[in-house]
Amino acid sequence: MERPKLPTRIGKAVALVVICLLVTVPFLVVLSTSLASPEEVTENGGWVLFPTEPTLRAYQEVLSGGTVTRALLVSVGVTVGGTLISLVTTVALAYALSRPHFALRRPLLLMVLFTFLFPPAMLPSYLIVKNLGLLDSYWALALPVAVNVFNLVVMRGFFQGLPEELYDAARMDGAGELRTLVRIVLPLSKAVIAVVGLFYAVGYWNNFFHAILYLNDSSKWPLQAVLQTVITKGQALGGNAGSIGDVSTTSPQTLQMATVVIATVPILVVYPFVQRYFTKGVLTGAIKS
C-alpha cells in the first residue's frame, strides 16, 4: 500500500483530535463539576470546566448517606456474580455447539439464533420471572440475561478455530470432553474469555431497566438504577439521610455529577487490563462465526 498523502494524514489527525475531544470534554466537565464548590457552580450556570477550588465534599456527602454506597455494593456483587454465571454458561454452551459430533448441535444453534432475531418482549419476560419466583431477587438481574447470543457466537467461532489436532490428541490420551475443555481449550482461550467477560461486565454494570422492572424494593437497586432516578427526576441524593431529595449543603448538580463519576470510574479502571485482548479476541472469534 502507498503511503497516504499529506492532506489525508492531516485529515485523519484532525478527525482523531475531534473525536477525542468529543469523548473527553463531556467527562471532564462532569468530573470538574463534581469537584466544584456550590458557589462556583451557581456562578457558572450549573457547569464548571476548571474548578478554582476543587473539593471532595460532594463525594463525601454522597458516599456517607448510604444510598449510593449500598447501591455501589449491589452493582459490584451483581456484576461479578452475573459475569461469572454468564461466562460459565456461555463457555459450556459454546463448546458444545462447536463440536461436530454433538447430536443436538444444529437444533440448539437454530434455537439460540432465533432468540437473537426475535428477542422476548418485556411482558413475557416479566411473567416468566414472576412465575419462577425471582421477583425482588437479585437472581432476576442475572439469570434472564445469563447468555448473550453475540458473545456465544464469538466464543463458538473461537473454539471452532482451534486446531482439530488438539482435540484428537486429547481423545487419544483418554481425556473426556470436560477435561479437554478445562485442560486444553480454556488455557488457549484467554483472549476471547477476557473480551466476552468485559462485554458481560459492562452489560451488568450498566443495566438499570431490569432492576426497576423486577425489584420492587428500591433499597435493592444497583447504582445505575439509582443514578437513572437521580438524573431523570432532577433530584440529588442527600448526604446524611441517604435518600433522594434530602436537604444538602452541596449543590444538587454537584451531587448528581459525583454520582455519575462514581458509576463510570469502575469500568474505566477495569478496561485497560483487558484492552490488549480486545482486538485479538473479537477478530479471532469472528472468523468462523
Rank of each mutant, 00 (worst) to 15 (best):
V226Q: 00
D173I: 04
E164N: 11
L181C: 06
P222Y: 00
V23E: 11
Y167L: 11
T229G: 13
Q224Y: 01
V41Q: 08
I262H: 02
I287P: 13
F118C: 03
V226L: 00
Y271E: 10
T8Y: 14
V14N: 08
S219G: 04
T42P: 06
K288H: 15
R106W: 13
G242I: 00
G157M: 04
R276S: 08
A94P: 02
W205T: 04
V88T: 11
I193E: 14
K233T: 09
G174Q: 04
F102A: 04
P107E: 02
I212S: 11
Q253C: 05
S32G: 10
K190A: 15
W47C: 07
A146T: 07
S75P: 02
L72D: 07
T52F: 10
A263C: 05
P144R: 03
E53Q: 12
L166P: 10
Q60M: 12
V230C: 00
I184A: 08
S189E: 12
G203N: 13
E40A: 05
K280Q: 13
G66T: 05
P100Y: 05
S251L: 06
Y95S: 03
V76R: 07
P7K: 13
P54G: 08
L283P: 12
A170M: 05
L283K: 15
L143N: 04
I262A: 02
W47K: 08
A142W: 10
Q224N: 02
L178F: 14
L283V: 15
L97G: 00
P124T: 03
R9H: 13
D246H: 06
Y271W: 11
G82C: 02
K233C: 02
A96N: 03
T69I: 06
V23W: 14
W139K: 09
V91F: 03
Y200A: 15
T232C: 02
V25E: 08
T52G: 10
G238T: 00
L135G: 02
Y126F: 09
V68T: 06
F114H: 03
P163W: 09
V62K: 06
F118M: 06
L109D: 07
M122F: 14
L84Y: 10
N240K: 12
P38L: 07
G203H: 11
R105Q: 04
G81T: 06
A71K: 00
P100G: 07
K190T: 15
V274E: 10
Y59W: 07
P119A: 04
W205I: 01
G82H: 02
G203D: 14
P100R: 13
R276Q: 07
G174A: 04
A175Y: 07
Q60P: 11
A175V: 08
T229P: 04
L87T: 05
V196E: 12
P187D: 09
A286E: 05
T232M: 03
L237Y: 03
V195M: 08
G242W: 01
R106Y: 14
N216C: 05
G46R: 07
D246K: 03
F209V: 13
N44F: 09
W205N: 05
R171Q: 12
P187F: 08
Q60G: 15
G11A: 15
F27A: 13
R105Y: 01
T254R: 09
S251K: 01
L63G: 04
R70G: 08
V74Q: 10
M257K: 06
T42L: 10
N44D: 09
L73K: 14
R9I: 12
N216E: 11
F102W: 11
T33F: 06
I212Q: 14
N207P: 03
N148T: 11
L87G: 10
V68M: 15
G77H: 01
V91G: 01
